[in-house]
Design a protein around this nucleic acid. Structure first.
Length: 202
DNA sequence: TTTGCGATTCGG
DNA sequence: CGAATCGCAAAG
């Protein structure tokens, strides 16, 4: 049942919104819908329920040591997709943040649907690969774009350290919808599972 | 050119 | 805990 006191609906998406500080933008992506046109032509959509922030001064960020061919789009204007290949078999999807010239991105870690719990799994589920690197996520004619959706309040968002990195592990830059059944990680976020060690925003 | 490893996932 | 699997970027 919706809580009408704290759940709002974001009316529009504009590029300035994504130009903000990455760590501020990241939790605000929770609840937005991702819309994907599959190679078959079928259009699918699902809400974002888990994200992680990566910034220029962050050793875990691909742009930490400057611009390279791989992370080039992170230095471009905000609101575009940064897709990279990892571990020889998975792709990961990010939303570019910060003003043009300053790198930053938010890793989309999970969608609120079965089969898209985890950054590698969601790209596999929706056949997202490097052909979508640089796609304009604010353009509804893109094969992948964002739509306004549920706007969660601070009291519904949990924060923890990021997953799967070995440097700057202590930064609390992973955000997810508290208690959501499709948050990634083994036995994590599922109903009845051991409660994850997490703190609430604010 | 070579080499070590990674913003992951799955099975044992 | 380790294998799968290969592009990327730092080192030589």
């Amino acid at each position: 049942m919706l809580d009408y006191l704290t759940v709002k609906v974001r009316k529009k998406l504009n590029r300035d919104f994504f130009a903000g500080p990455t760590v501020d933008v990241a939790p605000k992506l929770l609840g937005m819908s991702l819309v994907r046109t599959l190679p078959s032509g079928q259009v699918v959509r699902a809400p974002i329920v888990e994200v992680e922030a990566y910034t220029q001064d962050d050793p875990a960020c691909h742009a930490y040591r400057g611009i390279t061919e791989r992370c080039r789009v992170m230095f471009g204007p905000p609101g575009f997709a940064y897709v990279y290949f990892i571990y020889g078999m998975y792709y990961c999807l990010n939303v570019v943040t910060e003003c043009e010239g300053t790198p930053g991105a938010v890793l989309i870690r999970a969608l609120g649907i079965t089969g898209a719990e985890g950054p590698g799994k969601l790209c596999r589920h929706w056949q997202i690969d490097k052909s979508l690197n640089g796609a304009d996520l604010l353009d509804q004619s893109s094969l992948l774009y964002l739509e306004p959706g549920t706007e969660y309040g601070c009291d519904q968002i949990s924060v923890t350290e990021r997953i799967g990195i070995n440097v700057a592990r202590e930064r609390p830059w992973r955000f997810f919808v508290t208690g959501h059944a499709h948050v990634s990680g083994r036995k994590r976020g599922t109903a009845g599972a051991k409660r994850e060690k997490a703190v609430l925003l604010q």
